[in-house]
């Protein structure tokens, strides 16, 4: 039998190669998500929403009904779908700018209302699509287009601890975790648990994925992995932060 690419069943083969840059972490997060959708057998129930920013390039990524929304507004659009169609599995896919800056109010309030949706947020420490500006997640001292002399924590604060913030707001029944593209299998487990949480109707579910942006970081493969595996975890702790029924550590 001829060898074929081993893509998740839920991926739309006709739109591959996908539109993300060489080495972009989105491909890995979406691979984990695709496999999770396959394993949970929910493809026909999924409604997939994506943001503005690089995440919008996934508008035709899956063989799932999908909607590309505005910057930061994916969470409310997907919330609207879920409230109208509780039988659907609703996924809001966004970047760190969309989730922690322009759309932070929506993320916070959806968590507070314990919306039965799954938000997946890709953290790559910068605004990718607009050309690499400082993001809420930019590391201290990190140079970007709008922090050309490095992020100054005196004036620009520290990286947003997204999952920790969401966990603090979310109700009992919510699932919150942080994974990384450096460990795709574990990331998939978290995404699967998040989706399962929605399927079980327990509450809001949120997974942040640490990811790479070789284009705007101007890194080669080696430096990209170094940044994801060594620099980012200094500020962003990988692991499950809130799971239903489990006492918080």
């Amino acid at each position: 039998m001829a060898v074929v690419p081993n893509m998740p069943k839920s991926w739309r083969v006709e739109t591959k190669p996908h539109k993300f840059c060489p080495g972009c972490g989105h491909g890995l997060v979406l691979k984990a998500l695709g496999e999770a959708i396959d394993e949970l057998e929910i493809q026909e129930r999924v409604v997939f929403g994506c943001d503005i920013g690089c995440s919008l390039l996934s508008w035709d990524f899956f063989n799932c009904d999908s909607v590309q929304t505005h910057h930061g507004r994916t969470t409310p659009v997907v919330t609207g779908v879920k409230r109208a169609r509780p039988d659907r599995i609703c996924i809001a896919y966004m970047g760190d700018g969309g989730g922690y800056a322009i759309g932070a109010q929506h993320l916070v309030n959806s968590a507070a209302r314990n919306e039965r949706i799954t938000a997946i947020l890709v953290n790559n420490c910068n605004y990718g699509m607009t050309g690499g500006q400082m993001a809420p997640t930019t590391l201290p001292g990190m140079k970007t287009q709008t922090s050309p002399y490095g992020r100054d924590t005196e004036t620009m604060g520290y990286p947003t601890q997204g999952p920790e913030m969401v966990a603090a707001i979310a109700r009992e029944g919510a699932y919150v975790a942080r994974g990384t593209v450096a460990n795709v299998r574990r990331l998939k487990r978290y995404i699967k648990s998040a989706l399962q949480n929605q399927i079980d109707g327990k509450g809001f579910s949120f997974v942040e994925a640490l990811s790479g942006c070789p284009t705007n970081w101007s890194t080669n493969a080696q430096k990209t992995w170094e940044f994801i595996e060594k620099e980012m975890p200094q500020y962003f702790k990988v692991g499950e932060i809130k799971t239903p029924g489990k006492k918080e550590e």
């Binding site: 910057h71 700018g97 800056a101 322009i102 605004y127 699509m129 607009t130 050309g131 500006q133 287009q145 709008t146 922090s147 050309p148 002399y149």
Partner: peptide
């Protein structure tokens, strides 16, 4: 300011020059 294309470079130049 806040990033949005095609205005971004106004910020990029300003952040370099302003200080």
């Amino acid at each position: 300011g806040y990033p949005i294309t095609p205005q971004n470079e106004v910020m990029h130049y300003w952040t370099r020059l302003a200080p």
